[in-house]
Nucleic acid binder design. Structure first.
Length: 711
RNA sequence: GGACAGUUAGUUCAGAGGCAGAACGCUCCGUUCACAUCGGAGAGGUCGCAAGUUCGAUUCUUGCACUGUCCACCA
């Protein structure tokens, strides 16, 4: 029979469709806002949160790609000049680490290669994995403008970095100084506070007797979790108001194991109620102690090196690793009978967020960016409501963080990254220094900002900045979002985006964090392979219900696959009915109660979908569309249509199908586009009209740029 | 230590001051008629715990417990 020729097979096979359709889209040029038809005037922009070029995508990327593509595709259909700008992040430490890991397998270290060779290796890695990642986005159906793909270390971007750094430098906001900083001895670099991950460890609280110099057998007992740092103590501190110790202030103790004389001082930072109320002061390896040291002009004695080993200590401890030194110090204290007691003590230990090594605090010469003014810029925009978080509850922690923010240590002692643009400087910039410029550096800043007025008028920067939505994960709100906001205000004098959508964090079924090392990660491409891209997208979107967390299950993706098939088959049925008819796009007149009901339901579905998507309620809109299509349309109306069998019924079948395809397209672009392409051209020609309302023949292009349904 | 979120069917989640819902899974029945990736029927829940408000609470309030995340210089 002829009717089967429209869509020949009863089962939808994504593998036969997806690559073909993606090529059709790419060929159409419509991913590129400049090539969209004239009706697309007002810009709508999303810049992708650039994935690290460390490896492959995880399910969180798939979630975010789905969200962004839904937003972009709907806006495109609504007639916006849409740009979804893609790119990747060089991700300094992270990428350097994966390449080092690879080298280690070959028995080499980065030092064997030397800086230049090593960086060459990282570039090779970047080429391979950067492209892989972008291809993975394509497989998900992402409608990015690939002609505008950027990388945080491409040529233009490097100019942006220099411009930004020198700008701050000129303002006097960048300074260099020796400070106690977070130090990862494995990565051999400083880290900002945001790059630490605290993990609870069961340690001990050691109570150590420090003997008074001129007090027969008198002691002052200090409590510490880090006995090995006592080798660098330069004072003991108590609270001035602490009656117990009042008499001792100003006296001298003899530091055990080292035999150095150090003073007992008073400082308000000491908590009377913790431990014994007396603390050892190690200005070189603790932040509070550093502050106390500054105030009291104490000597700072560094005893832990950049490689995490003991230095400048009595011979027997020299060169020991920190943990080994701790053991030996405790043993020696026991031998000398000056370890009063030890208590179990659980505390939060800072770890390097990239390699999980315990982070030490050590004094080091670093570059800092003053945050006082910048933090204000970032706060104001959110307080004034110029930038809105969705959900709104994320604004509070954002503002809290900015209120207490310290100067930003922007130098890193690694090799992979932007060199600090100062003569003779070997360090590179924190990778987040470059991501902070992403929304405008990707659009041509600073080059186009300096162009002639005429060029600038036409520039991407002018057209697409500020962008509209930023969709990202909540763990980088401070690390990234805050910094983009103050950078945007500082350099562009304008917000970088209006809406910040914080998507759910994807957890495993058991509520655990997804982790490659634990083997609990899910590869989105395997899902695409097994269920198809539309099913994966729909299944993910279906689960986005506004919670902070999302326990990921494939059940919904299976449902998505079945839904694709349902859409496919319903379309086959409708096409078999409308074969010899001509149909108009305008709303048909209902003749029966069933007609009336389905048109009403469609109207309601359009309204709800618009409302939900405007509010970033992706799950709700997916539910609404599913219920409408499967139940209202297929279960009820299509069944009814088999009884009604009339020309009027066919008109309604076609009308409802076409509008459903449009509504579903942002969620399931492949299957809907494929069906649209199979709709008879004759029919469609009659529904497409020119500006003057005359029919235009054979103008059918893509569902991707069809007009979004209106009520 | 602070903040935010969650706790409802075997699983993942909706829901609303008045008979407890969906999807997947499970059980039974049904293939000439778009689709077995389907259709129909069914089993399955003290709505985390406790108190309060109310004629009535799974829903509102408070407290607690547990889970997750973010923030935090208590050694």
């Amino acid at each position: 029979m002829q009717k089967t020729s429209l869509i020949s097979n009863g089962a939808y096979n994504p593998k036969e469709v997806e690559d073909k359709i993606y090529q059709l889209w790419e060929k159409s040029g419509f991913f590129n806002p400049d090539k969209l038809p004239p009706r697309h005037k007002k810009p709508f922009t999303i810049v992708i949160p650039p994935p690290n070029v460390t490896g492959e995508l995880h399910i969180g990327h798939a979630l975010n790609a789905t969200v962004q593509d839904i937003l972009i595709r709907r806006k495109r259909m609504q007639g916006y000049k849409t740009l979804w700008l893609p790119g990747t992040d060089h991700a300094g430490i992270a990428t350097q680490n994966v390449v080092e890991k690879k080298l280690r397998k070959e028995g080499k270290s980065r030092f064997d290669l030397g800086r230049e060779k090593f960086i060459e290796e990282v570039w090779k890695w970047k080429e391979e994995y950067g492209n892989k990642i972008l291809n993975q986005f394509k497989k998900m159906g992402s409608s990015c403008d690939w002609s505008r793909t950027r990388f945080t270390m491409d040529e233009g971007y490097s100019l942006a970095i220099k411009e930004a750094f020198l700008h701050y430098h000129k303002k006097g906001w960048i300074y260099r100084g020796k400070r106690v900083v977070n130090w990862c001895s494995r990565c051999a670099t400083s880290l900002s506070d945001l790059e630490l991950e605290y993990k609870e460890e069961k340690g001990k609280l050691y109570y150590i007797k420090y003997p008074l110099k001129d007090g027969d057998n008198n002691f002052i007992v200090v409590a510490t979790t880090r006995p090995e740092t006592m080798l660098g103590d330069t004072a003991v501190a108590v609270n001035l108001k602490d009656e117990r110790y009042k008499k001792l202030i100003g006296k001298i103790v003899v530091l055990p194991l080292v035999n150095k004389e150090i003073p007992i001082i008073a400082d308000e930072l000491v908590d009377k109620n913790f431990g014994t109320g007396a603390v050892k002061v190690t200005p070189a390896h603790d932040l509070i102690d550093y502050q106390i040291g500054q105030k009291h002009k104490l000597e700072s004695r560094q005893v832990i090196s950049e490689r995490g080993k003991m230095i400048e200590v009595p011979k027997k401890y020299m060169d020991l690793k920190v943990e080994e030194a701790r053991k030996m110090v405790v043993e020696d204290l026991k031998i000398q009978n000056i370890l009063e007691k030890e208590e179990d003590y659980a505390h939060q230990v800072p770890k390097c967020y990239r390699c999980n090594t315990t982070v030490e605090l050590i004094p080091s010469l670093q570059w800092f960016l003053k945050m006082e003014e910048l933090a204000k810029l970032a706060q104001t925009q959110v307080k004034k409501g110029k930038i809105k978080f969705h959900p709104k509850s994320f604004e509070k922690p954002y503002l809290d963080w900015l209120k207490n923010v310290k100067d930003w240590c922007i130098s890193r002692q690694i090799w992979w990254g932007h060199k600090i643009p100062i003569e003779g400087e070997n360090d590179v910039l924190d990778t987040w220094f470059s991501s902070a410029l992403w929304p405008f550096a990707t659009l041509g800043w600073p080059a186009s900002a300096k162009a002639t007025a005429r060029q600038a008028r036409k520039s991407d920067l002018k057209t697409f900045y500020h962008t509209n939505v930023l969709s990202t994960a909540r763990d980088i709100i401070n690390l990234w979002v805050a910094r983009m906001i103050f950078s945007g205000m500082e350099f562009m004098k304008e917000i970088p985006f209006e809406d910040v959508y914080i998507h759910a964090t994807v957890l495993t079924r058991d509520g655990q964090r997804m982790s490659k090392s634990l083997g609990t990660g899910v590869d989105p491409l395997k899902l695409v392979e097994e269920f198809g891209a539309d099913a994966t997208r729909f299944g993910i979107a279906y689960q986005i219900m506004g919670n902070q967390d999302m326990k990921f299950v494939t059940d919904n993706i299976l449902m998505g696959k079945k839904f694709c098939n349902k859409i496919w088959n319903a379309s086959r049925f409708v096409m078999s009915q409308i074969q010899n008819s001509k149909y108009e796009i305008k709303k048909p007149t209902p003749k029966t109660p069933a007609d009336k009901t389905i048109l009403k339901a469609l109207e309601k579905t359009i309204k709800l979908t618009d409302k939900n998507l405007d509010n970033f309620e992706f799950g709700k809109s997916a539910h609404t569309l599913y219920d409408f299509f499967w139940h209202d349309f297929c279960d009820v109306y299509i069944e009814k249509s088999k009884e009604q069998k009339s020309e009027a019924t066919n008109k309604i079948l076609f009308y409802v199908l076409l509008n459903s395809l449009k509504l579903l397209h942002p969620f399931m672009p492949f299957v809907t586009e494929e069906i649209y392409q199979k709709l008879p051209a004759l029919t469609l020609a009659s529904i497409r009209r020119s500006g003057r309302g005359r029919p235009v023949k054979n103008k059918k292009k893509c569902l991707m740029i069809e007009e979004w349904p209106k009520n």
